[in-house]
Design a protein around this nucleic acid. Structure first.
Lengths: 209, 209
DNA sequence: CCGTGATGTCAACAAGTGATTACATGGGAC
DNA sequence: GTCCCATGTAATCACTTGTTGACATCACGG
């Protein structure tokens, strides 16, 4: 892989624990997003950060501690600037821009991919489940509640929107299916508006075509 | 994990290369789907099949050969019985039944998950890209072509449908987000009809709400 | 200027991986 | 019955991984 992407030797400081820790965290964050937990090796992370591997233990205790720290530093979806988009159109625009090509250049891939490809064991599974449910909650908060729809179906609808986003991220990054892989917000947003308006604003279709 | 799930000692045959090969393949297929390529170890596969690990080399050459064989044995989506569903309603029903809980009991998870969590190196990436593009092609074949829509946008629309399916599989199996995780075809189908009708039959929304 | 704690380096370990080799054994051909 | 090859077994190799402890070195207060 490409090495020395981020280095701890930024300023003149030869020894700076905060900078070292930050470089390690940034390098790990990128690898966790692009490669997942298993395929990320501490030696590669330390190589990216330009730092000795033993410092992972010093600053994060273990690989799992490093992963949890990166997970805590993961950006929130749909409101990276702190504000929730309003209405289906705004939500579709936000999804389109965040899930299209060339978004998240600092990570190389969509940060939601960090939540997948994680061992199911222990509390890591709980952490990502919570993060994705939070994602769905943000979707729900962006639109007016549908009348005549129970809370369970409302959750289901919002989670289908999240599923659409997750699937887009996976197909774009991991598999690079075309033309979805290179699609930008201008091509995606109109279609996402279609799907989101149907999933979040239209009554269900029960019987026939 | 659970061991001895499938055994080569089915019949009285003490030595049967075909049975051994099949048991190995079935055990590997299940593990590849549930755990992905990396977390699947040949020792566990051989343990599941009740067979010595060296037989993997004999029958499949290597771990990658075993993976390719399992990938070739993967069921086709949307037409496991050979017939393509017709119309958006039929497509939604097929998606709902294949992507809801308790489908694919022989694998434990949705077979599409085998296509993800695969190293990008070499021809494995090409294989899964082809499989997913084939999936999208089946989606397109199930519906009447939209007038006034170019082929690129048509492909994009069908791939968004695939993204929805992939996202559902991921959220259901890997993350187990509720209520999507336990949703059955009866809850999913009406909502999928909404999304699919919008994505495949409605004209795009360009300007405002 | 020196000691003391923080910071970083080095070498090694145990566990687990896929791969490979030499050997044992069963069953059918003759 | 007796070869003989397909089939299966056991042991091991070379390698990578995360982890660890002992040691070196820098920074800074006294």
């Amino acid at each position: 892989m490409d090495e020395e992407t981020v280095s701890a030797e930024g300023a003149g400081q030869r020894r700076n624990s905060a900078a070292t820790r930050a470089a390690l965290l940034r390098a790990a964050h990128g690898r966790f997003i692009r490669l997942g937990y298993e395929r990320t090796t501490l030696r590669d992370v330390a190589g990216d950060a330009g730092v000795n591997i033993a410092l992972v233990k010093r600053y994060f205790g273990s690989k799992e501690g490093l992963f949890k720290a990166a997970l805590a530093a993961n950006p929130r979806f749909l409101d990276p600037d702190g504000h929730v988009p309003s209405g289906v159109a705004g939500l579709a625009d936000a999804l389109a821009s965040q899930f299209s090509a060339d978004a998240w250049p600092e990570f190389g891939e969509h940060p939601v991919l960090m939540l997948l490809r994680t061992p199911d064991e222990g509390d890591l599974g709980d952490l990502r489940r919570a993060a994705l449910q939070d994602f769905a909650r943000h979707v729900l908060a962006s639109v007016d509640p549908l009348p005549d729809v129970g809370t369970t179906e409302r959750e289901l609808r919002s989670q289908l929107v999240v599923a659409l986003g997750v699937g887009m991220a996976v197909l774009r990054s991991t598999v690079a299916v075309q033309p979805l892989g290179d699609a930008g917000p201008r091509e995606l947003a109109p279609l996402l508006r279609l799907a989101l308006r149907a999933l979040l604003e239209e009554p269900r279709i029960d019987a026939d075509t």
